[in-house]
């Protein structure tokens, strides 16, 4: 899946998890890729089932919610100028400094398995995590996602 230019934010200057999610969510909402209430739903889910991953050398978060809040499957992306804290997935109360955010708006995740697998493949290599954090354009991001299978 190609990540659209309008859904890519580079070196976002923002100071909280909530702001990042609201920012990316509003981009998705502007194009009607998600339904009203998507951001609230993601925020709520993040409380119960956090999505921060302790990847090396920077943390990556993959906020998402149920497919019924989504009109069309898309991924929004942001790198953050200053890391913000997300709770760690599968841990109780552990906070992670997040530098890269992939907001997943997925209607049917199984249909996007190839893309999800590629992303997770990138997360597992410190070199590609660093590259993700240093992305300067949507084009560069898509190249990176598509090259590293």
């Amino acid at each position: 899946m190609e990540i659209e230019k309008e859904l890519v934010a580079i070196e976002l200057e923002i100071d909280s998890k909530e702001s990042v999610l609201a920012f990316l969510g509003s981009r998705l909402l502007e194009k009607a890729y998600v339904k009203e209430g998507f951001v609230e739903s993601v925020l709520k889910r993040e409380e119960t089932f956090p999505t921060g991953l302790p990847t090396i050398p920077f943390g990556i978060a993959i906020p998402h919610t149920d497919g019924d809040m989504v009109n069309e499957s898309k991924i929004a992306f942001a790198t953050l100028k200053n890391p913000v804290k997300f709770l760690a997935m599968g841990q109780s109360g552990e906070l992670i400094d997040i530098k890269v955010v992939f907001m997943l708006a997925l209607k049917e995740p199984a249909a996007q398995l190839a893309t999800l697998q590629k992303l997770v493949g990138l997360f597992q290599n410190p070199e590609t995590v660093s590259k993700l954090a240093a992305i300067t354009s949507a084009e560069e991001l898509n190249d990176l996602i598509n090259i590293k299978a």
Binding site: R45, T48, F49, I62, T65, D66, P109, L113, Q117, V120
Partner: peptide, 16 residues
Amino acid sequence: ICGTGIATSTVVKGKV
């Protein structure tokens, strides 16, 4: 299993 049975468990399933 994951939180909502959506994205994460799909990836984990593929890996397994």
